[in-house]
């Protein structure tokens, strides 16, 4: 599982961070940091998928490996 951020679009709303703070972190410059690797935990992965579909500007994409 890998997450691709569209940097042109992402403006740091932090919706993803609210749903899966273990994976997403928006800093005070509104830059989104994404964890390099996402643990195999199914509950967390479900929340990561939810974060991606919840992005209001559709800036996140998921690549399932």
């Amino acid at each position: 599982m890998k997450i691709i951020v569209d940097r042109q679009r992402c403006d740091g709303n932090g919706v993803c961070m609210g749903i899966a703070p273990e994976v997403f972190d928006v800093d005070d410059d509104l830059y989104l940091h994404v964890a390099e690797t996402i643990p195999e935990d199914p509950e967390l992965r479900a929340r990561v998928r939810q974060s991606i579909t919840s992005c209001p500007i559709l800036a996140l994409k998921l690549v399932e490996e």
Binding site: G14, M17, V26, D28
Partner: peptide
Amino acid sequence: VNAPRVVMRLRR
């Protein structure tokens, strides 16, 4: 304003 980390910490 412009403090997402603090605000999200307060949410928790």
